[in-house]
Amino acid sequence: MDAFLLQILNGLDKGAAYALIALGLTLIFGTLGVVNFAHGALFMIGAFCAVTLQRFLGYSFVTVDETQTDFLGNPLKVNTPYVEAWFGPETGAAIQDWSVPLAILLVIPVMFFIGYVMERGLIKHFYKRPHADQILVTFGLAIVIGELIKSIYGANPIQTPAPQMFIGTLDFGVMLGFDPGAVAYPMWRLVYFFFSLIIIGAVFAFLQFTTFGMVVRAGMADRETVGLLGIDIDKRFTLMFGMAAAVAGLAGVMYTPILSPHYNIGMDFLVLSFVVVVVGGMGSLPGAVLAGFMLGILQSFASMNEVKALIPGIDQIIIYLVAIIILLTRPRGLMGRKGVMEE
């Protein structure tokens, strides 16, 4: 039972990342009808926002401390980060420690802007072109973004630790009456899971309870009629693209302590997120979230040793296998609407 619970927990954080990326993908597909292969790259840009902020906060100047000497007997050179000089040592160190959560403040405007520019500058011209062309141009864009990141930050993964407070594990099992250590769960993953729930909730609330969201939903259902009512639906859809980009960026920024970002991370997540979208149903937001968590948990179950002994290699392919089965038996996905991309 405790092993069972542990696997569910393990699947949650990965599932949360899948769900967030897939949510953005579906949002873009549902509103603009565009298949965005560059969405993984947006996730990656988000992750690198955290890296940038961490570096930025780490900038320091050198002072010579006459009272201390280093091991050669020379006066000791002390590196003081600018933030510590400005805000005092304790506050400064805390700001540096919290660089990953602080990057959220940076990532929202940056990603929104990138999404907006991307839609106006590139995607707009591809609405009338076939889906294959949309896939190709966004695939090209994904290559370009990945390579740009590589040329700026290098090819190696960059460590971005979580705040000191969240390092270590939470002994989850003790609360439920299991043995100590049976269900230990890294703290930051728990944070990530709740963070993703908040974001998902916010997106749904925004679409459900605001006038703007209502118009967008109406536009998703029948774009033409909404346009005839005198509403500039294109403008709102562009904003939705920006929002989808921001969601992907948020997913990326908070994921950095779990997986050190590198230039290929976007591609790795993209393939899986696409599978998630397809399983959940093209254009269905609840479907994307459901499928994201479901596949994350399935994947962690498949990587249990007992399961692997039974069917070797299943952990590597379970997601693809599920996708193939779903596509062949229920092409519109788990919660897809009838008639949407069912061919």
């Binding site: 889906h131 294959a132 393939v271 599978v275 397809v278 693809y320 996708a323 062949l328 092409p331 061919e343």
Partner: peptide
């Protein structure tokens, strides 16, 4: 399947 589903299926098989 056709269209984008075909692309994703082939991608899934190759991966």
């Amino acid at each position: 399947r056709s269209g984008i589903y075909f692309s994703i299926l082939t991608l899934a098989f190759a991966q």
